[in-house]
Amino acid sequence: MTPDCRCNIAARAARELEDGQVTNLGAGIPMLVANYIPAGIDVVIQAENGITGVGPVSPPGTEDPDRRNAGNLFVTLLPGGCYFDTATSFAMIRGGRVAATMLGTLQVDGDGNIANYEMPGRKIGMGGAMDLVAGARTVYVLTEHCAKDGSAKLVARCTLPLTGAGECDVIITERALFRRRPEGGFALEEVACGHTLEEIAACTEMTYTVADEVKLDAY
């Protein structure tokens, strides 16, 4: 997984965001999405530790220990942004004010199950992810298509503890974009530059259909 691949995922994901949306970006690839929001689109980035209007990472020398995001990184605050306590933050999240949440994962499957907080020998924790996938209107999983050892992350059935049952709406990898259909199941809608339908089929254990109007070389 090269930095280019991660940026490619983030850039494609940024095009999903709509003007005026409140969005929560998880650690890792999702946080990169902030760098690719198209001109003319105003997105309010919320971080669950208690801040809206999260701006770019603080330039060196301007870091404020009391102005950080949920990944503990020093950030800037955009005009209109504000601070609040954790209970208020999760009222926003569960109460339906967060339109989109983008998060990484260890596994995701064709039923929209997401597993991203624990694997054998490594306990990480769900943080606010369980609340976010239950509360946000659209849940995006942004992930490398395969794990570092080459094993599938888009699996037939999640075997790790679930973060959310049936919550994933869109999966974006460096190779493909899958969107959940209203009737259930994921459809392959886009294939990234340099990849083919056959190649996607070979590295995806998750059940999916190919959309009638699947776009090749889409991003």
């Binding site: 954790t86 209970a87 999760f90 569960r94 943080g127 606010g128 369980m130 609340d131 239950a134 049952a165």
Partner: peptide, 27 residues
Amino acid sequence: PQGNLIEMLRCGGAGLGGFLTPVGVGT
């Protein structure tokens, strides 16, 4: 889960017995 955690403490502080949450269903 983080939102459940803060609400458990909030209820404890506010003299409430608990709450109903959709977070964690199916996990």
